[in-house]
Computed example of a mutant assay.
Amino acid sequence: MAWTNKTFNSDFILLGIFSHSPTHTFLFMLVLSIFAVTFVGNSTMVLLIYMDTQLHTSMYFLLSQLSLMDLMLICTTVPKMAFNYLSGRKSISLAGCGTQIFFYISLLGAECFLLAAMSYDRYIAICHPLRYPILMSQKICSLMAASSWILGSFDGIIQGAVALSFSYCGAREIPHFFCDIPALLSLSCTDTLLFERMIFICCIIMLLFPVAVIIASYTHVILAVIHMGSGESRRKAFTTCSSHLMVVAMYYGAAMFIYMRPISDRSPIQDKMVSIFYTILTPMLNPFIYSLRNKEVGRAFMTLVGNCKSGK
């Protein structure tokens, strides 16, 4: 009997968030529209930064990595949710569940460290502009980005492997639209308290440490901006930094709400709503926040459109 309870003997069932009522059908179409906008927006950001030589700077390189992570994050959850909704099938295999866990945990962790690296980049650019080419050289910037990917992947491998090592009982119905670890652990037949504590410790490292770096960086930035003599320089610095702070507030706020609460205090409905925010809405908003408030990105976009019209 114990053998039949093992996760590798049966698929999981994703209960999803939509029924086939007219209202939910409209919401499903809205999510697909958001997915399309997110896919195009982040792909465009990566393409612009890659093609426009004037955007080959540390700040835009890190921004391209953020867009790439957002693109991969939304592709980890929405296509499977859409397939299950349209096909009427709700199952997901053990391998599929493990793949989702690995990618979304890895990408969330990588974005945490990348956002901290972006705040450090702004600190160096504003507080030490003369030393910026040295302190944020191409080699250092690439190392920061690579470290973010590696640390995020390491976290994804550990959490995914441990989560799927537990035994799961009953109908194996996950009350979510993707294999989220907290929702998965609620189905476990075994005691997961130790693992929950490990997740909490990981969250402290993956969330609070980068937040501390961001707070320290922007504290120095604000002090430097206040003492700037030029109003134009002050306005430009605040515009650049405010875009990043908006992304940080949305991303870290949602992630802390989900992963730094005990599982006993969780509500499936709340978790779904917040998960929609940071896995679907935030990846859509990021390119718009940076592009609408950035003249360089706008110039690069118009140049690309002009080249396309002229056939270059």
Rank of each mutant, 00 (worst) to 15 (best):
V221R: 01
F257I: 10
M206Q: 11
I158H: 00
I201M: 12
V248E: 01
A254K: 10
M256G: 13
T190K: 01
V225R: 06
I222V: 15
S217F: 05
L245C: 10
V248M: 03
R234F: 07
A161S: 12
M250D: 13
V211C: 13
A237L: 03
M198N: 02
I204N: 13
S230Q: 13
A224D: 07
M228E: 10
L194F: 04
H227Q: 07
F166Q: 05
A237G: 09
V213D: 11
I204E: 05
S217D: 04
R172Q: 08
V225L: 05
P262Y: 03
V221N: 05
A237C: 05
I174K: 08
A254M: 11
E173K: 15
F200L: 05
D191R: 04
Y252D: 00
F195C: 04
Y218V: 06
L194H: 04
F238N: 07
F177T: 01
G156K: 04
A183Q: 08
V213C: 14
E196F: 00
L207K: 09
I263V: 08
I263H: 06
S188L: 02
F238T: 02
F195Y: 09
P182T: 04
C202R: 12
G160V: 01
I158M: 04
S165K: 10
I199F: 03
L207Q: 10
R172M: 03
I263T: 06
M228G: 02
S165R: 08
R172G: 08
A212H: 07
M206T: 03
S217H: 12
G156D: 02
S233V: 00
M198F: 12
H244P: 01
C179E: 08
M260L: 12
A254C: 15
E232F: 06
L164K: 04
L194S: 11
H244A: 02
L193D: 04
I201D: 11
L245Y: 09
T190N: 09
C169K: 11
S243W: 10
I199S: 09
D265A: 15
T192A: 00
R234A: 14
I222M: 14
I174C: 02
M228P: 00
T219W: 14
S186L: 02
P175G: 02
S217M: 11
A254P: 10
R172Y: 04
L223N: 15
R261S: 13
S230K: 09
P182Q: 06
M256Q: 14
G160K: 07
S264G: 09
M198W: 04
P182W: 01
H227E: 07
F200H: 03
I204H: 06
T240L: 15
A249W: 06
C189E: 11
L164V: 07
V213Q: 15
F238Y: 14
A216Y: 13
A254E: 07
P262G: 09
H227P: 00
I158G: 01
I205A: 03
T240A: 15
